[in-house]
Every structure is written in structure tokens, then in C-alpha cells.
Design a protein around this nucleic acid. Structure first.
Lengths: 178, 178
DNA sequence: AACATGCGAACGAACGATCGTTCACCGTGC
DNA sequence: GCACGGTGAACGATCGTTCGTTCGCATGTT
């Protein structure tokens, strides 16, 4: 997909049509315009998130679910295409409310699932008492996404280490061992 | 500046020239092209960061410096123009290595300053023992920027509360009170 | 079975607008 | 007369979108 290679605004409608294997005119039979194509892609991101959402709803030990989530979501974010696409969508969301709506919905879905895992963990005593689980959840997600962005922009291909990130998150979320 | 209103790629060179109060032709006497204009803006961001850098080098109690920084940087990020500009630059950085270089330099400058504050705090005993101060610093910055992005995209103008964020950061960084 | 009709998916030429960039020209101060 | 900073018309390319046209196929009529 050429939104990844050239970016949304640098990609012409002819490119999109060619890559999709349809003619220019026919593209407009399926989409109301270029904007609708991006909207569709943003909507598809939702489905990409689905596995993570169901993973977070695992009913086993919260700490292990959290670690598994961090590991898996980190792998997801290590693919530059996911970072670039999020960036592209976020950029467009600034000026296009319908894109912003989808972007936030997707983010919130993940946020809610992670927050409720944290809440469960606190209740079950695996986690320290977190006054604001939603805030903590967004901290974790932001940290991962920020890390992924930096890794993507770096020319030297530094992969993101799971261990160091997980250590930090674990410390932030569990009671100190004493 | 119309990069904010329309985005970099949606802004024509004629717009840029008009806003800058120079003729179209003369713009090319000052800049080698449209790209160079964005590069210049990315470079200027560096100077915007300067006050925060010097603030972080304050030699007083680390915890207070940190709180002051969080407060001030949050105010900075509460202005949507700063979030949008960062997003715009980050998007372009994906495909333009020289922009990426500046973007990362700016980020790293802040990261280093914050990390060394944390290191000092750990040494002086105000902070808990943080194994990876740089990681912790990037966590703090990512959290703030993530929050700011969400606030910018939200239609309802929710301002970012300092108190709740500071509580979280303080907890993450200081020893528990017992 | 053969033919006529209508439907809608697919197409790409064409449109006007705008893009980033160049460059011949102009006025001004020496 | 010369040098030069400033100018905007002009250029070729490409943009997103429209729309007249084609054509395969299902349906209806003899």
C-alpha cells in the first residue's frame, strides 16, 4: 500500500486505484472520494486491534496477561508499517473530525481493555493500588507507542527490547518486593 | 502559519510566501525549496525547547524541578499548535531523513536533560532507585505527549489536568511513603 | 431458441485547479 | 552601464473528480 511509502497526501488517486487493481473511474463507484479510502483504512485498524483486545480479557493471572500483552503489542508496533499508518492517520485526524473519531475509538478500545485488566489486577492484589487505572493504562500505551516511533525514525535499526520495557512497567504497576 | 491550519503538504508554496510577506520568487532566494522551509521550522523547534532544557538543569531539589517541568511542559503541550507541529514533523520525518535527524535531536536533548535530572535525584535520594533513568525519562515525555495528542483530537475541549498526571509521575519516581 | 431491452459495473479521457520550480525582466543605487 | 535583490508570469506535471461511454449479463418477449 502506497500510503506507507509515500504518505496519504503524496499518493494520487490513480496510484490507489492501480494498486487496488481497479480503474480510476471504478474507484469512485466504491468510495465517495480519496478521503473515504483513508477512513476505510482507519476503520480496518480496528480489526487489527481485535486480537489484543481479546487477549487482554484473558481470565488468568493479570501480571502474566499484562506481560504477554506488552510483548505482543510491542511486536505489533515493531513493524514500521503500523507506526507509520498510525502517524498518518493521527496527522489527518487533526483536520478531519471523522478520522479523529475513529482514531480515538480505536485508542479508547485498547485503553479500556487495558484499564480493566489493571483494575482486576488491583482487586486481586497482584498490582499495587493504582488510583487511576485508566491513566496508568494510557501511560503504558503511550510509552510503547513513543518507543516504537523513535525506533522507526532511527536510521540504525535498533529493535525495541522487551525486557527493559517490561521491567519498567512491572515496577510501575506492582508493589515493591521488599 | 498555515502548516498548522492545512498541514505541510496541503499548504502551497504561494501560501507560504504570502504569509511570510515575500514574493513567490523571492522565497526561493531564501530557501532552496519547500522542504527547506519545513526543515527550518523543525530547527526552530529546538529553540522553543531551550527554556525547558535550562529549567531542567536547575540545581535545586530534583522533585521540585521535576514538578515544575511537568507543569510547564504540559502548558506548552496544551497549545494545540505544538502538538500539531510535532505531528506534522514526525510524519514528514518518516520519509525525510534530515527531518528525522532534527526531530530525534530535539527529542533526545529533552530526554537527556530529564534523564540527568532523574539520575541526580536518585543519587541525592529524593527518587527511588531507577535502573534506567533514560527509559524513565522517555516514559514521562511519551506520557505527556500522548496525553496532549488525545486532548488535541478530542472535540470537547478537555484541558489536561496537571494534578492527576503529576500524582502518577511522582508515584512512579519516588519511594512509596509506607 | 432467438432476439430485444434494461441495468449497473467498469472504464479512462477530459476538466479545471493547483502543485513546486524556474527565469526573464524590472527598478534601484552605484 | 552595471550589478543585483525582488518579482510574478509561465512551465510541465499532477492533483481529485466527473461523466459519457462501453459492455457483460440477467430478464422479458416473441
Amino acid at each position: 500500500m502506497s500510503f506507507l511509502e509515500k504518505g496519504y497526501h503524496q499518493t494520487g488517486v490513480r496510484d490507489i486505484a492501480k494498486r487496488a487493481g481497479v480503474s480510476l473511474g471504478n474507484l469512485y463507484n466504491h468510495f465517495s472520494g480519496k478521503h473515504a479510502v483513508l477512513a476505510e483504512i482507519a476503520a480496518l485498524e480496528r480489526e487489527e486491534l481485535q486480537p489484543f483486545l481479546s487477549y487482554l480479557r484473558n481470565d488468568v493471572a493479570p501480571l502474566e496477561v499484562l506481560e504477554g500483552f506488552v510483548r505482543n503489542y510491542l511486536i505489533h508496533l515493531s513493524a514500521p508499517e503500523n507506526v507509520i499508518l498510525s502517524l498518518e492517520i493521527a496527522s489527518e485526524a487533526v483536520r478531519k473530525p471523522d478520522i479523529a473519531k475513529m482514531f480515538l475509538e480505536n485508542q479508547n478500545a485498547l485503553l479500556d481493555a487495558l484499564a480493566s485488566l489493571l483494575t482486576r489486577g488491583v482487586k486481586e492484589g497482584c498490582f499495587r493500588s493504582l488510583p487511576d487505572t485508566r491513566g496508568a493504562a494510557s501511560l503504558i500505551l503511550d510509552a510503547m507507542e513513543g518507543k516504537a516511533l523513535r525506533a522507526t525514525l532511527q536510521t540504525d535499526k535498533t529493535t525495541i527490547g522487551h525486557a527493559e520495557l517490561w521491567d519498567f512497567i512491572k515496577n510501575a504497576v506492582t508493589n515493591p518486593p521488599d
